[in-house]
Design a protein around this nucleic acid. Structure first.
Ligand code: MN
Ligand code: MN
Ligand code: ZN
Ligand code: ZN
Lengths: 139, 139
DNA sequence: GTCTTATCGGGAATCATTTTCATTATTGCA
DNA sequence: TGCAATAATGAAAATGATTCCCGATAAGAC
């Protein structure tokens, strides 16, 4: 059994950079890479370093504010989570522009757990991502 | 609509290196990284280069002989496919040792297509991976 | 055996991500 | 309000997987 670390809220300082990264993500319902966010912020005159962008994106993930999807080419992309860490969900993602729709599939959840249990696997989680072309990109 | 390239069977030469990579993968029902396969082969005295390992792993994927899973840390892992490219399936994978079981979920397939269609997405595919600890690693 | 060229592999190049660490800015408190 | 404690920053270097380059090697055809 894993030790359950107390959910100690880490003390975080409010900074311009942190706010800027969050705004950049909030601007679109799209999965975006750290490099992309960084380029966008710099282009808009924001004073921020690449390390800081990576740092905040990871913080968002740790805090359950953002989801991350690893593209086949290895690049990680981030997107603010609709309703924070409350609801478990997955995504329908446009492989062209990154636009994403949050989706739920209760049946998939139970299926995944059942299959894992049947094979004796424990401490289970899963990834379910549907990729395609959004209507805009299909044109 | 995508042009359907003629399924021209590429002429491939039989080499010791290609066979060695396939054997290394066949030895275990586990997803393994290129670096890992390379290290294993060299350790067993095999005369092979890292580039060649990557080359053959990619060939296996192109030929539908192997599946690839991208780990969260970005590393790609490969595993020979049970029944070649015939059956679409997913995997239940041990996040500790990489041991994998091929699984099927017809309901998930139809669900994925339906959800995508409802949102107007086209040219759809999906990834479904269940991770956990196998009985051996749970001990 | 000889030729053609697919394959090999050492090493350099890419490139996203991480680490380092001196500098800067935020927050709690006197 | 003033200041010390320290969290945050970011430029630069390091890391590490993967790809690229290209002269050397070897499989397959005749
Ligand atoms: Mn789920
Ligand atoms: Mn499927
Ligand atoms: Zn799109
Ligand atoms: Zn295991």
């Amino acid at each position: 059994m894993a030790l359950m670390a107390p959910t100690q809220q880490v003390k975080r300082r409010a900074t311009n950079q942190g706010a800027a990264v969050k705004e950049a993500l909030a601007a679109e319902d799209t999965f975006r890479s750290a490099q992309d966010v960084y380029a966008t912020l710099r282009a808009s005159g924001e004073k921020i370093g690449l390390s800081t962008v990576y740092r905040h994106l990871q913080i968002f993930v740790d805090d359950g504010l953002a989801d991350v999807i690893h593209k086949p080419d290895g690049e990680s992309t981030y997107r603010l989570c609709g309703d924070a860490s409350t609801t478990h969900h997955h995504h329908l993602v446009c492989r062209q522009c990154g636009k994403a729709v949050e989706i739920e599939g209760p049946a998939v959840e139970t299926w995944a757990d059942k299959v894992a249990a049947q094979h004796g696997f424990s401490d289970v989680n899963h990834t379910v991502e549907i990729f395609g072309l959004c209507t805009a990109c299909a044109a």
